[in-house]
C-alpha cells in the first residue's frame, strides 16, 4: 500500500476506534462527512482527493473494522456513480452529498421496469434510506439510471428486518412513478456501463467491509485466547486452537491481497465478483470459528462476537446474492479465455 493510503487508513481507524462500536451511528456519519472520507475517490476535476477506488476501499475496510452502522459506504458508491455520469448539474449533487445529505442505493437485487414513462417494481436493502433524501436506482434492463426522491407519492420505503443490528436496511416499492418526476442520470448504453461499474464497485465495497471486520474479529479472538486460562494455561497455548487462528490469518491476508490486486488492474467485473466471493467467504469463516473459540461468552448478547457473525452472514447475501457468485466467476473466466 502506498504512503497516502496508509495514512488514510490510520486516520480513519483512529476515528472509528475512538468512537467505538456500531452504536455511535450519528457521530460516525458526522465525522466521516467532516473529515472528507466521501471525497477520497472523487476526481481532481471535481475538486475531490482523486485517490481512486483503492482509497474508498481502505475507508470501507476501516468502517468494516468498526462494524460501522452509518451508511457511509453506500454514500461513497452513489458519489462514485455520480462522478462517472454526464449529469449536467453533477457538481450540485456532489455538493449536497458531501454536505451530509444521504444518497442511498440498493445493496441487493432490484427489479424495476419502465413502461409508458412510468416506473414500477422494487429495490432491496438500501442502507440508511430512512434518513436519505434520494435513492440512486436503475431498471432491470440497465437502460436507465435515475435519482428518485424518497418522499414522493407512489414510492414506499420500509425498514427491512435483519438479525444484523449494525446495518439498517430499507426496501423501496415503486408504483407508477412518473419518469418525468425523476432525475435521469443516464440512459441506454451509458446507463448500462454505469450500472455494471456500480455493481462491481458494490462487490468491492462489500469485500472491503468483510476484510476489515474479519481482521478486527480475529484480533479480538486471539486476545481472548491469550487471556482466558483453562487447564492452568492460556488457551492460546493449545496447538489445535493456534492452528485454526493461523489458517484464518492466512485466509484474511490472501483475500486482502487479492482485493488490492483486483483494484490495481484494469476494471474487470469478474475480478470484482471474485473478490466479493472470496472476502465475504473468508469473513464468514472467521466469524464462524471465532464464536466457537470464544466459548460460552461468544453466545452472550453482551459480547461483541455475535455482531460480527451476523454482519458476516448478511454480507454473504448482499450484492448479487449468495448463489450467483461462484458460477458467475467461472463463466466470466471462460469468456475471457
Amino acid at each position: 500500500m502506498s504512503v497516502e493510503l496508509n495514512e488514510l487508513r490510520d486516520s480513519v481507524r483512529q476515528v472509528v476506534s475512538g468512537i467505538g462500536q456500531y452504536g455511535a451511528k450519528q457521530s460516525l456519519w458526522d465525522q466521516g462527512i467532516e473529515l472528507g472520507w466521501l471525497m477520497v475517490s472523487i476526481p481532481e476535476s471535481l475538486d475531490g482527493l482523486d485517490m481512486g477506488v483503492a482509497a474508498s476501499s481502505v475507508v470501507n475496510i476501516e468502517l468494516g473494522r468498526g462494524l460501522c452502522a452509518a451508511p457511509l459506504s453506500s454514500a461513497l458508491l452513489s458519489i462514485e456513480a455520480l462522478c462517472d455520469s454526464n449529469l449536467s448539474d453533477k457538481a450540485d449533487h456532489l455538493m449536497q452529498a458531501l454536505s451530509g445529505e444521504l444518497l442511498s442505493l440498493p445493496f441487493a437485487n432490484s427489479s424495476i421496469r419502465l413502461n409508458d414513462a412510468s416506473l414500477n417494481g422494487y429495490a432491496i436493502a438500501l442502507p440508511g434510506a430512512g434518513q436519505a433524501t434520494q435513492a440512486l436506482l436503475w431498471t432491470e434492463d440497465q437502460q436507465l439510471l435515475f435519482l428518485a426522491s424518497l418522499d414522493q407519492p407512489g414510492l414506499k420505503c420500509v425498514e427491512r428486518s435483519t438479525r444484523d443490528v449494525t446495518r439498517t436496511l430499507f426496501d423501496v416499492d415503486l408504483q407508477n412513478l412518473s419518469l418525468k418526476e425523476q432525475t435521469i442520470v443516464a440512459e441506454g448504453e451509458q446507463a448500462q456501463q454505469l450500472v455494471s461499474a456500480l455493481l462491481a464497485r458494490r462487490d468491492i465495497s462489500l469485500a472491503a467491509d468483510s476484510i476489515g471486520a474479519a481482521s478486527e474479529l480475529l484480533e479480538m479472538t486471539i486476545e481472548h485466547l491469550n487471556t482466558r486460562v483453562q487447564f492452568r494455561r492460556p488457551l492460546a497455548m493449545f496447538q489445535a486452537l493456534k492452528h485454526r487462528c493461523a489458517d484464518l490469518k492466512v485466509q484474511i491476508v490472501a483475500s486482502e491481497a487479492m482485493l488490492f490486486d483486483a483494484l490495481a488492474r484494469p476494471f474487470s467485473e469478474t475480478r470484482a465478483m471474485a473478490a466479493k466471493y472470496l472476502c465475504c467467504t473468508s469473513f464468514a469463516k472467521v466469524a464462524e470459528e471465532s464464536l466457537q473459540l470464544h466459548g460460552g461468552i461468544g453466545m452472550a448478547d453482551e459480547h461483541d462476537c455475535h455482531l460480527f457473525l451476523k454482519r458476516a452472514l448478511l454480507n454473504m447475501h448482499l450484492g448479487r446474492g449468495e448463489a450467483v457468485y461462484a458460477q458467475a466467476v467461472a463463466r466470466g473466466f471462460l469468456q475471457e479465455q
Binding site: 487479492m258 490486486d261 483486483a262 471474485a274 472470496l278
Partner: peptide, 9 residues
C-alpha cells in the same frame, strides 16, 4: 468458480 478467486489470491 470457487477455485479461481483463490488462485488469483
Amino acid at each position: 468458480g470457487c477455485l479461481i478467486p483463490k488462485v488469483d489470491a
